[in-house]
Design a protein around this nucleic acid. Structure first.
Length: 449
RNA sequence: CGGGGCAUAGCUCAGCCUGGUAGAGCACUGGUUUUGGGAACCAGGGGUCGCAAGUUCGAAUCUUGCUGCCCCGACCA
């Protein structure tokens, strides 16, 4: 993309409403625009990141055997009356009436609707297990939305729902999502730790929140330090096989959010030099809830013994519009964002320090064409601005690798490659620049391991 | 939902206390000179001072009501 042809409204000054670093940087980098409290437009740069996050989530959900569909944002109130939640949910749920005076609601979640789809078509235990997911906009009328898209009223969420004949089947479904989540966050460059979470009235141990450690996190968390560098299940993990060893390994070390924290157990099981007490951002939750919806909504299948049983369900959420700011909280410095390659809006940027100079223009055009031909998602800063402005913009929007070319280099046949994350700079012959960028970028995509 | 605060140019803000022709920096337009870390100079354009009522000869400024937004807390399947 040529920057002169793009829409990238970066801000030099910080809008006063932004408090935390990710919110400030999303506004400054021209990623989002607030339209009302808790409502945001995603501008091109922000939307590009959001799409990359979505692609990774879809790939890993599909790999784990979940099947994608799409349910509407508006739902009939009657479904929620069946489960009893229409009255229970409170003012967080946005209620709407259509022209025929039918009660609708803007969905805050989709258990009822997916259960309705399931019960309409599935009759036999032979059709199980089943896991259906979608990625759709949700709305919760938060009393106090804040921190930009970290806690907005309208938000994009991946929610998966598993259906199984019994508790044991549901446990396996849960484990598949557990492993898929480990891979999903890792692919985005995030270290997300599964922590014991509250299961409410259901009980049991089948609920985890996936937490990214960050100073600005909303909740206090406690965990064993070794969880921070545990190996991630590989791309050839067999999701139809036995996942117990992986899940057991990850859940054998102490990790808990504040609500479930057991201080005595923490002190007893975690050596003092391994104790991590920090703040964290919840970027996902997986949850087994049994027959909570299948019973009242009569989502049953006929078992091998000829008897009808209510299916055991679980739900598995990832907040996409929260992951983007969480990534920024995890990866930034004073100059701006530092995107991991796998979610970066552009993988490399070419900075033409003297647009209008014939040799600079010609060399940059050639590099741009070659990088694109090599499959690198490239931003070419061909604006007529000064060098300083180009450096500042590139650093702010966080492109992982900058290919910097000025009149000096154009003459001597060299470019400078700046690594955004480390600040490292290397000078390299122009002829070698493209293969060098490919060599740096491709392994960091994390899409083949 | 309790408490606090803010609303003036696209952005950050001054002016308000003590009523009298609406300002600065950045951004934008034209021009000249620049060009390796958000350039300099010259000349321009841009405002129902959030909305409504009131007080006054006169309101950005004082009063009342409303709306929107932010911060702290409570809340967060």
């Amino acid at each position: 993309m040529r920057l002169s042809q793009y829409f990238l409204p970066v801000l030099k000054e910080v809008p006063k409403e932004a408090e935390i670093v990710s919110h400030r940087m999303m506004l400054r980098a021209g990623m989002i625009r607030q339209q009302a409290a808790g409502l945001y437009s995603w501008l091109p740069l922000g939307y590009k990141v959001l799409r990359k996050v979505q692609d990774i989530i879809e790939q890993e959900q599909n790999r784990a055997g979940a099947i994608e569909l799409l349910m509407p944002t508006l739902q009939p109130a009657d479904l929620w009356r069946e489960s009893g939640r229409y009255n229970d949910y409170g003012k967080e749920m946005l209620r709407i009436e259509d022209r025929h005076e039918r009660d609708l609601l803007y969905g805050p979640t989709n258990e009822e609707m997916v259960t309705d789809i399931f019960r309409a078509y599935v009759r036999s235990y032979k059709e199980l297990p089943l896991n259906l997911y979608h990625i759709q906009w949700k709305f919760r009328d938060e009393v106090r939305p804040r921190f930009g898209t970290m806690r907005s009223r309208e938000f994009l969420m991946k929610d998966a729902y598993s259906f199984d004949l019994d508790m044991e089947g549901a446990r396996k479904a849960y484990q598949r999502m557990f492993v898929a989540y480990l891979r999903t966050y890792w692919r985005m460059g995030l270290t997300a730790i599964p922590m014991k979470a509250d299961t409410g009235p259901i009980g049991g141990d089948l609920s985890h929140e996936f937490i990214v450690l960050a100073d600005t996190g909303e909740s206090a968390v406690f965990c064993h330090a070794d969880l921070l560098d545990k190996a991630i299940p590989s791309i050839d993990t067999n999701f139809l096989g036995d996942l117990d060893p992986i899940v057991d390994d990850w859940t054998s070390l102490y990790a808990s959010t504040e609500e479930m924290h057991d201080a005595a157990e923490y002190e007893r099981s975690v050596p003092a030099d391994k104790q991590i007490s920090a703040r964290g951002i919840e970027v996902g939750q997986i949850f087994y809830f049994g027959t909570k919806y299948s019973e009242p909504m009569k989502a049953t299948v006929t078992g091998a013994d000829g008897k009808d049983v209510a299916v055991h369900m679980g739900s598995y959420g990832i907040g996409l519009t929260r992951i983007v700011p969480a990534l920024i909280e995890a990866f930034h410095d004073d100059d701006g964002i530092i995107w991991p390659v796998s979610v970066a809006p552009f993988e490399a940027a070419i900075l033409n320090l003297k647009s209008g100079d014939a040799l600079c223009d010609e060399t940059c055009e050639k590099l741009y064409a070659e990088l694109q031909a090599a499959g690198i998602d490239t931003l070419y800063d061909d604006r007529s601005d000064g060098a300083g402005a180009k450096f500042a913009t590139a650093d702010l929007i966080g492109v992982p690798y900058q290919v910097i070319l000025g009149p000096r280099g154009a003459k001597s046949g060299e470019v400078e490659i700046k690594h955004r994350r480390t600040g490292e700079r290397e000078t390299i012959g122009i002829a070698d620049a493209v293969s060098r960028i490919v060599g740096l970028v491709v392994p960091e995509r994390r899409d083949t391991v």
